[in-house]
Amino acid sequence: MLAYVLRRLLHTIPIILVGSFITFVMVSASGDPLGDLLAKQPPVSPAILAAERHRLRLDLPLLEQYWRWLTGIFRGDWGPSVTRVDIGHEIWPRLLVSVRLVVLAVLLALLLALVVGVISAVRQYSWVDYLFTSAGFLLLSMPAFWLAILLKQQAIDVNEATGSTLFYTVGDASIPPPTGFWPTVSDIAGHIVLPTIVLALTTFAPWSRFVRSSMVEVQQSDYVRLARAKGLPRRTVLVRHALRTALIPLTTVVAMDLAVLFSGAVITETVFQWRGMGSFLLSAVRDKDIYAVMAWLLLVSVIVVLFNLVADLLYAVLDRRIRLG
């Protein structure tokens, strides 16, 4: 097991290294970070430009820039930002905000996927099944941003109709934040409801299809038939033999979708104007802020990779047939 984890991690490091190098080159090639400065009227003095160029390490060869970035990471130095903020200082709180959203959305999506998938499988070809299937297709075809705006508008309408703030539609927390533990928690909870719903709704449809089809398959399996032949009650067979076995592969599916979820989070956060990873990324890209973009990509890809590893380990623990290797 340990050997497997080590091997997986070692295999991953080159992937992240190569990936980060390629993105570094791409981001560097995507434009001159000093473009805005150069375009300024009246022109900025060449001395300032040169100083800025030096601060952003643009006077170094590309390979050296990359090397300094890479070695800097291990010293906790994320590199200079165009906007002169400390990237490390800026990104961690934002990561927390986004991960909070993604984790809650994954949980909600899993719950939805299970309920919908199992009911559809057990009542295969009934009207419930058709209803869930149609709803699934609709959500699968719905752009997250459109759904988000739609829900946001509904929430605003409800707020206006009731004359009180039932739903928070802007930001990830109130500004300024309330004091005290419980007020903070409830404030955050109030802000997170709508984005979580959007992200979960646009994610769960393929998962519930997966649950449905693997439940259908498992229900026709020989071992479920044998379990029934033992005289076990239907519900026991369903939960213990069918559901448990059908769910194991779902861990892989969820892990594979994690990168997609972060994409969805970027969009959702944009609509609800959160100060999370989404706006961090978008403004960094817009400013051609190389090191900010790199920090974003590195953090998210490491999370994705680690989560995939955890999913694989979990799979092996749940299904003893899988020999890690």
Binding site: I15, G19, A29, S30, G31, V260, V266, V285, S301
Partner: peptide, 22 residues
Amino acid sequence: MRVADLVLIFPAIAVAAVLANN
């Protein structure tokens, strides 16, 4: 397949934004 995995690790929207920015 490593190369293919490489692409899948990064959230598409971020890479797309970087690439499409210019």
